[in-house]
Nucleic acid binder design. Sequence first.
RNA 1: CGGGAUGUAGCGCAGUCUGGUAGCGCACCUGAAUGGGGUUCAGGGGGCCGGAGGUUCAAAUCCUCUCAUCCCGACCA
Length: 571
Amino acid sequence: MRYSEAFIPTLKEDPAEAEVISHKLMMRAGCIRKLTAGVYTYLPYGLAAIRRVERIVREEMNRAGAIELMMPMVQPADLWRESGRYIKYGPELLRFTDRHERESCLGPTHEEVITDLIRKELHSYRDLPVNLYQIQTKFRDEIRPRFGLMRGREFLMKDGYSFDADDAGAEITYWKMHEAYKRIFSRCGLRFRAVQADSGTIGGNFSHEFMVLAKTGEDTIVACAACEYAANVEKAAIAAPTPAQPGTALCETVETPGKKKVADVCAFLGIEASELVKTMIYLADGKPVAVLVRGDREVELVKVKNMLKAVDIVPATDDEAFAATRMPPGYLGPVGLPIVICADQEVMAMAECVVGANEKNSHLRHVVPGRDFQVDANRIGDLRRVAATDRCPRCGGALEMTEGIEVGHIFKLGTGYSEAMKANFQDADGQERPFVMGCYGIGVSRVVAACIEQNHDEHGMVFPVPLAPYQVIILNLGVQDEKITACAEELYAELQQAGIDVLLDDRDERPGAKFKDADLLGVPFRLTIGKTFLTKGLVELRARRSGESVEVAPESLVTLLCQRIEAAMPE
RNA sequence: CGGGAUGUAGCGCAGUCUGGUAGCGCACCUGAAUGGGGUUCAGGGGGCCGGAGGUUCAAAUCCUCUCAUCCCGACCA
């Protein structure tokens, strides 16, 4: 591509609306422009990066035996009613009515459509397994779209769905996809980690997220320093603590005037936060529930949600909490609380603790869990968020916490959808059985954003070779000079011939402007043809990432560049 | 949805408190010089000051409403 004929509108300054680096750089480098909140046009340069990701995704999906198709974006509401998700999916599902008053929605994901397709088309175990995928625009009406392509409402996704005859088959498919995903992100040149994850709204019981390691990540993950264990903090399991010998002192009320916060109560009573139990009120699908965790811990809402099998769980406001409990906020405790109580396992293992007295300005001490208050056994469990001081649940090793950007997510879905939608096949024994499903997603546009979060410097983007729209940029620093221009043109033609994607900066711009743009665009290799060519007949080859440069004779460049590019391709 | 902030030329911003008829830098157009890290000089074009209503002789500026965008939160009772 000739720069003079390209459409790469670069900006000198960061746009005011962009906060994170990938958003700023994608705007500045002419990759994207915003149309409305969370909705972007992919300009040619950004699109080219997306296409690179797509290509790798296709190759690896196909290699793993998946087959590409394309499903509609507009979907009938009835299909979503059948799966039960028309209500459950919530306001993120954009709904509308067409001219015939038919209720419809924009597909945020395609389990319903694919399940409908398969139940109509496949009837025998002989046809299984089958694994289908598409790369398509999704729409999710996010509460708060942000950070450019990182969390858009409209975004490009690879979504795949597998159908197996039984659980064992589904697991084989699952691990095939796990392997394919590792290959995909490795080939993209990203530093990532596969972590155990919560399966969220989609449901199911086995799930991994693929996290690109970058500071701006919206997720926190824990990884064991000693073994392979890694998990999203939402999911990270905490080993059951050894129960302490229950205390024998009798429970008593203490005055704690005006002390509502954990820190205040602890300071006042001269105890550690770990000796106190806090009582948090939530609304699970509208029903109030109290959650007990130690004073120094944080409730992990996803875990509570899963324990209660709730669709939606939110912290109650003071007013809602009061309405539910008739007890004064700030002094809530489990003793005599008239609503459902869930307790973190650690709480029930405490010898004794301090809790709110359900009475203004008072707390209770020497409270023995299980003696002074009861919690149903099925409401006791791992409900708190993992802390950096926790040990690996698998091997007991030290845990490290890192920020990550979720770029891929795979689920073993089981038969939830197939049962709800009556998607059955006939097995060898003549029995009707539901398909055992799996689903596999990659945020293709987000991969590009995550890549930039992970690969940039103060001058701009630093594309890894596999995702770079152009591997090489040629700077013609003498568009007025016949010799320089002839050399640039010749190299341009030769590199293209060699199958390299190359951008020729043939604009009548000052050298400074060309250098700045080349850096901003993050093209991995830069060839500069100017003075040195006139004096020594040499061309400068500079690597964007390392900044190393060498002066090379033009005739040896094609071979050299092919080698360098080859060397920079992972795998 | 709650809280905060911001909407003035394509982009980044000043002007708003204290009302007087719109400005700076970059970009763009013309000309000249320049040509290895966003070059210089001269000249020029471009704005319903987010929108609607109100107050006033007069509104970018004050008031009311609205729309949009961005950030934080929606766990520490």
